[in-house]
Structures are given as structure tokens and as C-alpha cells.
């Protein structure tokens, strides 16, 4: 896995901003952007004009249009809904389209680098294919038979509301990026990461779903690796309470199914009874 080095190690000397602020809502700021690919790279400083309301993605687009046409960046909606423009801004995993310059200090260069938990493709673009492979491994939605003769179901709003939080996920993978099991310990083969615990929770708590994903969460998906440091929750742009509302309840279900002595006894007896 290739991860770009930290700014202090290879940042190129800063080109000082050319001009002083023109007015209260317009000034030049410097963006220290990672440029490179799997073979290596470095930070480059780009001074650019900023104005009221701008977000980091605007600055990156301006730099791309005026100074670096080949600066690679993913984006789509520019409204925090598609989860494409994930990056690390001043070291924090964030969506570029939802990070306003007014919330950053522009007195020092703003660092923009790719998500470091994923293999680098180029500049700010990383290889996210692992996430797509992981999702396929999770047992898909499996509904109970319809409630009504016309093939429809009756669901209470409260049951819809319960899983809304998980279904808001925009798949930006910032939670995966910040998770130390993935980022530092590289347990990608045995651990699916917070995004997919949220996905599994949405299915497990879906009012119509009848599949059981608990054994797989324990054995193949590595939920035990999570030691609930809540880093994922702290970076989620949708404010999903990933650890408390998705991961911990799933961990509890794992405990109930595999480690509850009373439950084990009941299971043993019922099996003996059937046998």
C-alpha cells in the first residue's frame, strides 16, 4: 500500500502568496496539495484567490483550471450528498465540498492530501475498490414474505426512523480512512470497517429483513477488532453515531449469540431436545 509521506517530510518550499487581501471577503491563500502517484510524490504549494463562502473543493477546482489542469480529484454533487470528494484537510478526513475556508486558518498553507488508508492512484484520488469488494461479501437484503395479498408490506414509521440514521450514509469512506484497524494495522482481509458495520446494522435492523449476519460479523468480518475508539464517528460528515448506534449493538448481538452462557445452555438443550 502506498501512502504519501506527511507534510513535514517532503513538503516543497512554499511560494509566498503574491498579494495582500484585496478586501475583507477576498484574499490569496496557499493550498499545499499532494501531487504524485503510486511511485511517489510531494506536496506542491498553490496560491489562489479566495472569496466569501468558498469551500476547499472550489479552491482545488480553481487551481486545477488555472495552474494544474492534470490535478486529479474526484467530485460529483458538490453538496455533501454523493461522498466523492473525501480527502485529508490539514490532517483531518473531510469532504472537500463541505469544508468552508472560513472555518480554516488561511494564514498558513491549507494542506490537502488523499485519504491515506487507501492505495494512491494519483494526487487526491485513491483506489477504493476494496470497499466495493467488501460490500459484495455481506449477505444481501432478504425480506420476509409480503404482509398483504398485493405483495406489499406494512411498516410503522418508527421502524423506518430507527434505521434512517444508517441509510443516510453517503459512502465517502472517511470512516474507513480514519479507522486504525485499516489505516495502521492493514487488516483489510479480515476486517470490513465501520462503513460496512453501518451497512450490516442497516440490514440487521431493517424491519423486513430476516437474514442473520451475526455469525459472519464475528468470523469473517472481524467486528471484534474494533475497540470502539469512535474515530469513525468523529469524522462522519452525515453525523452517523457509528460506534454507539451501529457497532456496539452489533457487538452485543455477537455476544448474545456466541458468548452468553445462559443462551448457550438453552441452545444446547433445545438441540438435544430436537435431536
Amino acid at each position: 500500500m502506498t501512502t504519501p509521506p506527511t507534510p513535514g517530510l517532503s513538503g516543497v518550499p512554499s511560494r509566498a502568496p503574491a498579494s495582500a487581501p484585496a478586501s475583507s471577503d477576498s484574499r490569496t491563500a496557499t493550498f499545499r496539495v499532494w501531487r504524485g502517484d503510486a511511485t511517489g510524490g510531494a506536496f506542491h504549494d498553490y496560491p489562489t484567490e479566495t472569496s466569501t463562502g468558498m469551500v476547499v473543493l472550489d479552491a482545488i477546482h480553481q487551481i486545477q483550471a488555472d495552474q494544474a489542469n492534470d490535478l486529479a480529484v474526484r467530485w460529483n454533487c458538490k453538496a455533501g450528498k454523493c461522498g466523492s470528494c473525501s480527502a485529508e484537510i490539514n490532517g483531518k478526513p473531510r469532504l472537500m465540498c463541505m469544508t468552508r475556508l472560513s472555518d480554516l486558518s488561511l494564514d498558513a498553507p491549507v494542506t490537502v492530501e488523499p485519504m491515506r488508508a487507501f492505495p494512491l492512484v494519483k494526487d487526491l484520488v485513491t483506489d477504493l475498490s476494496w470497499n466495493y469488494r467488501v460490500k459484495k461479501q455481506i449477505t444481501k437484503f432478504t425480506p420476509r414474505p409480503p404482509d398483504a395479498p398485493d405483495g406489499t408490506w406494512r411498516i410503522q414509521q418508527a421502524d423506518v426512523d430507527r434505521v434512517q440514521e444508517f441509510r443516510k450514509c453517503i459512502e465517502c469512506y472517511l470512516c474507513q480512512d480514519v479507522c486504525h484497524v485499516i489505516r495502521e494495522h492493514h487488516e483489510q482481509d479480515t476486517f470490513i470497517g465501520p462503513r460496512f458495520f453501518v451497512y450490516a446494522a442497516a440490514l440487521e435492523m431493517h424491519p423486513l429483513d430476516i437474514a442473520d449476519r451475526i455469525p459472519a460479523l464475528k468470523r469473517e468480518h472481524g467486528i471484534g477488532f474494533c475497540n470502539i475508539t469512535k474515530c469513525c464517528t468523529s469524522v462522519c460528515p452525515e453525523n452517523i453515531t457509528i460506534t454507539d448506534n451501529a457497532i456496539i449493538p452489533l457487538k452485543e448481538r455477537v455476544v448474545d449469540e456466541f458468548y452468553d452462557p445462559l443462551g448457550k445452555l438453552v441452545k444446547l438443550f433445545s438441540r438435544a431436545h430436537r435431536g
Binding site: D37, N69, D70
Partner: peptide
């Protein structure tokens, strides 16, 4: 005209 190469090049 575009700068750079064919790899992930938004200008191209």
C-alpha cells in the same frame, strides 16, 4: 491542449 499524461488527468 492538455498538460501531463493519460493517467487520471481531469484536464484531458
Amino acid at each position: 491542449a492538455v498538460d501531463g499524461n493519460r493517467e487520471y488527468n481531469p484536464g484531458w
